[in-house]
Nucleic acid binder design. Structure first.
Length: 269
DNA sequence: CAGATATGACAAC
DNA sequence: TTGTCCTATCTGG
């Protein structure tokens, strides 16, 4: 379930398990064999999440960079190591624990210049204290692209994924197709604050919940709202079902190659 | 057991 | 915009 909150959770988890320890790393599948050799037996100094990217910083300025993509998954547990099952790209162990990684888009070892390049291409991460929402707004206000696409653009907002983008637009009452240049400074600040609060809650809970306001009993009965991902949502993956606020059928569409969901009544335009 | 599906990103048209 | 890649899991027959 890789939106930014998941990556920040993983960074904290991996820090707890392995930071300060010497770890063994290998690649049973073989596709990360060369990279594993570079960090095997080194000390993990610290972990870091930046948007949807996870970094494990090792001694001697080597960093393991992981991007889960759509399918990537981590698992961890207590030693002994379980026998490798399926496509196991990367395996790490040390300090009494093991970590398994399957199906990532990226799993590579980077030196400092490459890490700098990565940071430079990422936008503002609402979960990081160094984020600057005004810098992101500068890109939004000068763009004709739909605000939905801008939220998902990792060089604008790092870490926002499909669920957060759809849900935060619903909560803002903003049509997903609204061009960036039509988003006011106040509107952006409000949406940013909302997104940051939702994502922080996502880190704490390990799931995406966006339905917090009280509804009428009739609204509560309208439809189940717990998505497969385990969280409570207003519009995400609820096409054809009644809007939890007004009862209008939730619409589904495609924009910038991503699935779009919105309520035409609550998000006019 | 085949086929569809999944919260992502990138290259190529 | 379309195609492609990464892998596991859920669905229907």
């Amino acid at each position: 379930m890789p939106e930014g909150h998941t990556i920040h959770r993983l960074a904290a988890r991996h820090r707890e398990l392995f930071a300060g320890r010497v770890v063994a790393v290998d690649s049973p599948q073989g596709r990360f064999a060369a990279g594993a050799t570079l960090i095997d037996g080194r000390r993990l100094i610290d972990t870091e999440a930046y948007g949807k990217h996870l970094l494990h910083h090792f001694a001697d300025e080597l960093s393991l960079h992981i991007h889960l993509g759509l399918y990537g998954k981590f698992a961890d547990g207590e030693l002994p190591l379980p026998p490798p099952v399926g496509q196991l790209r990367m395996r790490m162990s040390g300090g009494g624990h093991w970590l398994e990684l399957r199906g990532p888009t990226a799993c590579e070892v980077l030196e400092p210049p490459a890490v700098a390049v990565l940071r430079a291409r990422l936008g503002q991460d609402p979960l990081r204290d160094d984020a600057d929402p005004l810098f992101a707004y500068g890109k939004v206000r000068s763009s004709t692209k739909p605000v939905f696409a801008l939220l998902l653009d990792q060089s604008v907002v790092a870490g926002c994924g499909l669920i957060y983008a759809n849900e935060v637009l619903f909560r803002a009452g903003l049509a997903p197709t609204t061009p960036g240049r039509f988003v006011t400074a106040a509107g952006w600040q409000e949406m940013w604050d909302d997104l940051r609060a939702l994502m922080k809650e996502g880190v704490a809970r390990g799931r995406i919940d966006t339905v917090h306001t009280a509804h009428t009993p009739e609204a509560m009965r309208r439809a189940p709202r717990v998505d497969r991902h385990g969280g409570e949502v207003y519009v995400y993956r609820r096409p054809g079902q009644p809007c939890l606020v007004c009862g209008t059928a939730v619409q589904r569409g495609s924009l910038a190659g991503r699935n779009l969901y919105w309520c035409p009544t609550c998000q006019p335009g």
